[in-house]
Design a protein around this nucleic acid. Structure first.
Length: 232
DNA sequence: AACTAGGTCAACCGCCGGTAT
DNA sequence: AATACCGGCGGTTGACCTAGT
């Protein structure tokens, strides 16, 4: 049976996000969370489909996103985990706080794959542990949220203190009154630095926060002695 | 300075699994 | 049990950027 399309194609915007759209999305999620991605764009006054909003948030706007180049340690981790898990980017991303599956995927295809040569390219297609593992349950989004943020109130503690550096005009259409410039802080460098430090804090205080099914299987391999030197 | 080729990365697409009805 | 909905994932694309000629 065919499925309904994820969104009505008519009238929905595609392509790069504008700063104004980013602000609307951030502000909405800050206020109301993202329980229902499908309904979110309509409620927030965005002419985007829910999937697009989710992707934008996960890959770019989420406060704990770590921007900038990958460190040698991170690259090494990706290589080792890829060797172990194959193209399970989300699983690999779960071991690299602040990095997204999309970003890791891009880095793999643009840097690491070339660096490693054809052997690893072939290896890429191999389902390394699939035969040995039942389907790994996906991480519940709430669990993930808890892992990264703790309570929803904690999630945006940094955002609320960021300073506005410019006015974007704030023309948010029908929902404009809900998103006054006062309620919608601009994203500036302090936003990223604050949230980054917060994520680093979460990452260093207690790595057991990342315990999930992914960890379970990683530990299985660790105990088997396959990846002893991973920075867990 | 203009053009071209290759690299990068944000975003889209289609599929899948889980869950609600 | 069947169906529909939704979130999430991995593959792919294409616009933009940069280095080389």
């Amino acid at each position: 049976m065919g499925r309904a399309p994820c969104c009505e194609k008519m009238g929905l915007k595609k392509g790069p996000w504008t700063p104004e759209e980013d602000q609307i999305l951030i502000s909405y999620i800050q206020k109301y969370g993202h329980d229902n991605w499908r309904a979110l764009p309509k409620l927030a006054g965005l002419l985007r489909c829910g999937k697009s909003c989710r992707l934008r948030w996960i890959n770019y706007l989420r406060p704990d996103i770590k921007r900038g180049n990958f460190t040698a340690e991170e690259e090494e981790t990706i290589i080792r985990l890829h060797e172990l898990l194959g193209n399970r980017w989300s699983t690999i991303a779960a071991k690299l706080p602040g990095r997204t599956d999309n970003e890791i995927k891009n880095v793999w295809h643009t840097h690491l794959k070339k660096r490693l040569g054809p052997e690893h390219v072939n290896h890429e297609k191999r389902k390394v542990v699939e035969s040995a593992t039942p389907s790994v349950p996906r991480t519940n989004s709430d669990e993930e949220h808890q892992r990264f943020f703790g309570s929803p109130e904690q999630s945006f503690s940094g955002l609320s203190s960021s300073t506005a550096t410019e006015s974007s005009g704030g023309n948010f259409g029908a929902k404009e009154e809900s998103f006054s410039s006062e309620a919608v802080p601009e994203i500036d460098e302090s936003f990223w630095s604050e949230t980054l430090s917060a994520s680093e804090l979460f990452g260093t205080v207690d790595t057991s926060n990342y315990s999930d099914h992914t960890d379970f299987w990683l530990r299985v391999f660790l105990e088997a002695g396959e990846i002893n030197d991973l920075p867990l």
